[in-house]
Write a protein that binds this DNA or RNA. Structure first.
Lengths: 142, 142
DNA sequence: ATAAAAGTGGGGAAAAGTGGGGAAATATAC
DNA sequence: GTATATTTCCCCACTTTTCCCCACTTTTAT
């Protein structure tokens, strides 16, 4: 399972190295649009569980169609190459505003990929609000 | 199973390449009129299952009759040629407002074929609602 | 300090995408 | 019925993108 934070570059071919610590679980992975302007990266195994659920929603309702288009069409299978890198497709880089410098963070069952600038901003704000955010944890008994 | 999004062209003969990743499941396929102004493309196998379901809808309701007429009468068998392309008949291209540039998206058990402009519009709107969409994840237990 | 591992960049072969010519099949005209 | 036109389908050729490999630099470990 993934924890920690790493700073990596995206090269001119759209490739980004997966932190070495995370590679053993990630021969095949799926990247998709995440919340708060970052990308989510799941192992194939984790992703399949989620995708099955989404795919089984009825096509008759317009909001479930919209939802599967967001989650499924937004996703992309990626293989890790010999150097431990994945190619992030252009539409996902655009979605997350990724330039060269990116931050990769581990969140137990997924990775998140952030543009460095956005992450710094978010993180600063987040640290400021950590006390009030923590209050919400009450609900789940932490 | 299909996920991801690809940008391909329709040529002057009405041919469109199937993304290489999707071809192995699609020697024989069925294209038909879809919802929200796009085309649905199923493997023959998936289509047969769906067609059975639609055909079993009661003929007493006018809206189910209309739906069967859309999906069943609109359907067309297509073969994938040696270069991995299918021919989209004129009436379907017209239905979906397809010009040269199209987007092909994978939605697990079907593909959707969109005019690029329409997709951009739809997708942008959809992404705006991504936060409220995320709430729906609760409902399917993610 | 040296060796090993991780991260980064780029060249070249292979695959994918695209466009078009021409044969076979079908349709239309005389 | 034959000849001409039209459409469909298969194949070839070109361009672009992707993928795999090698090489160099930087960081980590001993």
């Amino acid at each position: 399972m993934f924890v920690g934070q790493y700073s990596h570059n995206i090269d001119s071919k759209g490739r980004m190295a997966i932190p070495a610590k995370f590679r053993h679980e990630l021969k095949k992975a799926v990247v998709t649009k995440g919340l708060d302007n970052c990308l989510f990266l799941y192992s194939k195994k984790e992703w399949d569980k989620l995708a099955e659920k989404i795919a089984s929603l009825p096509i008759s309702k317009s909001n479930t169609r919209a939802f599967s288009r967001l989650m499924l069409a937004g996703a992309m299978d990626v293989d890790v190459d010999g150097q431990g890198r994945v190619i992030l497709p252009e539409y996902l880089r655009k979605f997350a505003g990724l330039n060269k410098q990116t931050i990769i963070i581990g969140l137990y069952n997924r990775l998140e990929i952030w543009d460095e600038k956005r992450w710094e901003k978010y993180n600063l704000e987040n640290e400021k609000n950590s006390v009030s955010n923590a209050e919400a944890l009450d609900d789940i008994g932490v």
